[in-house]
Simulated scan of single mutants.
Amino acid sequence: MSRILPLLAVLAAVYVAICVAVWMFQRSLIYFPQPLTISRPDTLLRLAVDDAEVLVSIRPHAGPKALIYFGGNAEDVSLNLPAFTQAFPEHALYLLHYRGYGGSAGSPSEEAIQRDALALFDRVHAAHPQTMLMGRSLGAGVAIRLASQRPASRLVLITPFDSLQAFATRQFPYLPIKWLLKDRFESSTYAARIRVPTLLVAAEQDEVIPLSSTEALYRHFPPGVAMLKVIPGQDHNSISESPAYLPLLRAAL
């Protein structure tokens, strides 16, 4: 017994230290800022939001239609400009670089990104009344929350998850994630408020966000609002390389 108690004390101290480390450094485990690749003056919009200036990769286009895109946690969204320009020729394009990404000021967090997303939508929607939202992976969490707050015309979610808390709990079942997590991205909660046509696109062999997580999110939408499509033979990162990918997104418009 005299040996067991010190051992338990050491294990408890290690566990507490791990929890403290997760609390302090969790955002470095969620966000992986990427540099900007396509940076011509005609492809960049500088958006002032509160105390920061964020960058938006753009393809200007006159007319009522626009597409706002939110990328994954390790994505340089500017790389989508060439493909999206061809896929969506009738839409003005706006691809948000999260804070800390691609030259945007500040540090990323759920609330900061959401403020930037709201500001971007209000600016875009004023010029393009038919504004569609699209988000991939982490960006799906941004897009769905925004669609619950603003009058988007359509919503497309690529490899979306039900909530970051549920995802993290599955990844780290022995940690008290509920009490540690700062950014929760509770997409399932916002799904119940969506009333615009919504497409969920999943990868059959997604090793990062299980198909079951996307299916769980799908079940939270009101009846008749959302449609789920699974691209066979693709994983989390290769889904955009599938020949079916862009035609499926085009069809959602």
Rank of each mutant, 00 (worst) to 15 (best):
W23P: 12
W23C: 14
W23I: 13
R27I: 04
I30E: 06
I30V: 14
Y31D: 05
Y31C: 02
Y31P: 00
P33Y: 13
Q34R: 14
Q34P: 06
P35H: 03
T37D: 11
I38T: 10
I38N: 12
S39F: 06
D42K: 12
D42N: 13
D42L: 07
T43N: 11
L45Y: 14
R46T: 14
R46M: 12
R46K: 13
L47W: 00
A48T: 13
A48W: 01
D50T: 03
A52D: 03
A52C: 01
V54E: 09
L55T: 08
V56P: 00
V56D: 03
I58V: 15
I58W: 08
P60G: 13
H61T: 12
H61D: 13
A62W: 04
G63H: 01
G63L: 07
A66Q: 11
L67M: 11
F70D: 00
G71E: 11
G71W: 05
N73G: 02
E75I: 01
S78M: 04
L79T: 13
P82Y: 14
F84M: 15
A87K: 04
F88P: 09
E90W: 07
H91N: 15
H91S: 15
L93M: 10
Y94Q: 11
Y94K: 11
Y94C: 14
Y98K: 09
Y98A: 12
Y98M: 12
Y101E: 02
Y101S: 00
G103L: 09
G103Y: 08
S104Q: 11
S104Y: 09
S104E: 02
S104P: 07
P108Q: 09
S109N: 13
E110A: 09
E111C: 13
E111A: 15
I113Q: 07
Q114G: 01
Q114R: 02
R115M: 02
D116P: 02
D116Q: 04
A117C: 02
A117K: 00
A117T: 00
L118H: 00
L118V: 10
L120F: 11
L120W: 08
R123G: 05
V124F: 06
